[in-house]
């Protein structure tokens, strides 16, 4: 017998279930328990940059809005810097920029919304720049492993983005584009299944 490879296995995922809000956003579940809930402010009001708001729906395979979904977003600041020690420029991130947000849908309509500053381009692999984008992670009842996708902006030049260009079916690239509906306002619908299915990523 050769030596054993002593890697552990990743804990398998399970659905977040219908009551994910109790743990991650108890105010939405109907009770205030923590001094502060996490992920509500992605960029404090004094963070320099272009303020944007994004709203949208997550739609299931029948076209119905998913009303018990929880989204998290992660993105760089307007200079393209992540507030994380692995980013070599992280010390230059504006105070009050966390880059991470946790977003709850309206239980009646399924509409969600977040406010932040527009991210800048980020250095990708092999020195190739990535167009401004927001990492999105989606959990809900019926979703066994959190789904990752990216939101790009239709009013940016995405033509050289290395990830966008990996999508072989060119028509599907548009599923990652947030539509500009007014100055600073974007619409981003996520389709879990079927016509116009959003591109999801194994990251």
């Amino acid at each position: 017998m050769p030596q054993p490879l002593n890697y552990l296995k990743e804990s398998p995922s399970q659905t977040a279930g219908p009551y994910v809000h109790i743990g991650l956003a108890p105010g939405a579940a109907g009770f205030e328990i923590y001094r502060q809930e996490l992920g509500q402010v992605i960029a404090a009001p004094d963070v320099p940059g272009n303020r944007i708001s994004v709203e949208g729906l997550v739609l299931d395979g029948t076209g119905a809005p998913v009303k018990d979904v929880l989204l998290e977003v992660w993105h760089a600041d307007p200079q393209g810097i992540y507030p994380h020690p692995e980013d070599p420029r992280h010390a230059q991130v504006a105070p009050g920029f966390r880059g991470w947000g946790r977003i709850i849908t309206d239980f009646e309509t399924g509409l969600w919304r977040f406010d932040t500053v527009k991210p800048g381009p980020v250095m990708g692999r092999n020195g190739r720049m990535m167009a401004p984008q927001v990492n999105v992670w989606i959990v809900a009842r019926g979703i066994n492993v959190g789904l990752n996708t990216r939101m790009y902006f239709e009013d940016e030049d995405n033509s050289a983005d290395p990830v966008m260009n990996l999508i072989e079916q060119v028509d599907r690239r548009a599923t990652l584009l947030a539509r500009r509906v007014a100055p600073g306002q974007y619409r981003f619908d996520i389709r879990l299944q079927g016509d116009g299915e959003t591109v999801f990523m194994d990251v």
């Binding site: 299931d60 990708g124 692999r125 990535m130 984008q133 019926g142 999508i167 879990l192 999801f200 990523m201």
Partner: peptide, 17 residues
């Protein structure tokens, strides 16, 4: 059944993001 993507995921190598 209605909340699972039908198409394959796009596999990415890790970047700063």
């Amino acid at each position: 059944v209605s909340r699972s993507p039908r198409l394959a995921m796009l596999s990415l190598q890790g970047s700063m993001s």
